[in-house]
Structure formats: C-alpha cells, structure tokens
Write a protein that binds this DNA or RNA. Sequence first.
DNA 1: CTGGTGACCTCGGTAACCGAGGGAGAAACC
DNA 2: GGTTTCTCCCTCGGTTACCGAGGTCACCAG
Lengths: 111, 111
Amino acid sequence: MSRPSDLVQGTLDLLILKILALQPLNGWAISQRIRQISGGILQVSDGSLYPALHKLEQEGWITAKWKASENNRRAKFYSLTRLGRKQLEKEAADWNRLSSAITHVVRLEEA
Amino acid sequence: MSRPSDLVQGTLDLLILKILALQPLNGWAISQRIRQISGGILQVSDGSLYPALHKLEQEGWITAKWKASENNRRAKFYSLTRLGRKQLEKEAADWNRLSSAITHVVRLEEA
DNA sequence: CTGGTGACCTCGGTAACCGAGGGAGAAACC
DNA sequence: GGTTTCTCCCTCGGTTACCGAGGTCACCAG
C-alpha cells in the first residue's frame, strides 16, 4: 500500500558489496552498518537482506564462513571474492552514471 | 535474465513529472526527451511509459488532452496538475536524500 | 497504394523488495 | 533455575515495477 521505500530499488547488492569491501561482516552487522554509515537514512530489513546475501553468494561474489560474533553468538561472516570486487566496481560505475544522469534531469531549471 | 537497466527502479515517475514540469508533452515525446536530456543514458520503453502515465493520471498528478502533435498526428498531451507539482517536489527531495546517502556509502575509502 | 513511422495501448513474465512469521542459542535478570 | 531479551539466522507470500513482445490506427512520402 504505502511506499516508504527506505532504499532505492536495485541498489541493495551494491550497498552490501561495498560494505563488505570495507570489512567482512555477518548479516546482522551489515544492516546495522548500512544504517549507521548513512546516518539512518538507509535501512535494510532482514527479509530483503538474507535473500540478497544468498543470491550474492550463489553468484560467487561473496563467500561465507561460520564464526563467533563479537557477542559470542554463531554468525555467518561474509567477505568479498575477487569476482565480487569486479562486480562492485561495475555496479558502482553504473550507479554513478545513472544517478548523476537522473540528478541532472531533476535539477533542470524550468524555462 | 540480464539487467541492463537503463534506469534506476522507482525513478520513472519522478522523471516523467519533471519532464512535464518543463513543458506539456505527449507520451512518445516524453521518452524522446528523457533520452535526449540525459545524453542517451536514460531510456524508457513504451511498455513502461504508458502504464506509468495512466497511473500518474489516476493519482491526479497529471492530466491528458488530445491534440495534434508537431507532425499532425493525434496525440495525448500530458501536463502537471497542482497536486503533481507537490508530488514532484516530494519525489525530488526523496531522490536527493536517498541518492546522496547511497553515493556517500559508495565513495567511502577502504580502511 | 504501400511502407514507414508517429503515436497509442495491453498483457504476461520476471526481478526485487518487504512484512510477517518462526527458531535457536547466549546472556542477563529475578 | 526459569524466563526474558537480544543477537542472529531463515523462509514464504504478496506487491510493485519494469520490460519485451505484440498489436492497432492514421498520416505522409514515394
């Protein structure tokens, strides 16, 4: 019904890849990190995050390893593969191209 | 399968509203204009455009009027309503907020 | 009168996201 | 020691959006 949309569609993969490029993290921490870094503007729900992580893993862009988290709980830590870095570069470039094109249009002055 | 994605999901309404804020246009001309202004980076297919136009009209953000086009063909010219201007402001603000948050994350330096 | 093209439209599929729901184990509280 | 809280994982069904393919009609040039 409503469209609060706390994130722009199609950018979730990009955000995850970027966060993991900074450091390997477990799923829960990834969503915390995205929220924190964006100053609370971007939020990812579990229901979006985990399916996305599985997809990225299946594509071979990230790999998972079970470890203990900071709070001593079992957690799956994800890190970027070499392929993942390639993909990140590509998606970041796409984002820059498209978002600046859109911003350009949005900022046009009315005649 | 592939995701060439010549536009960022969720921004189609925004683009249409903005283009129509500059001047009333018919459907076909809208897609031409978007492509032209963005230097060919953004492209909208018919199959996306017309349903979107109908939705925007139904929301009361744009209104349609049949006229003759530049080439003397029957064409439906769309223009922004007062509500549509409100909506445009809102969507433009959302876009700025979200896109700059994402860009900020993407540009972070690795530790 | 035929073909190109401007202009409109619909339908079905697919991708993506999200809310709701559920579960298990560590820690903290009483 | 039992219960609650918090971290952390996961799935499923629904909704929204977009897009490719397909189709129609009318004007105009040759």
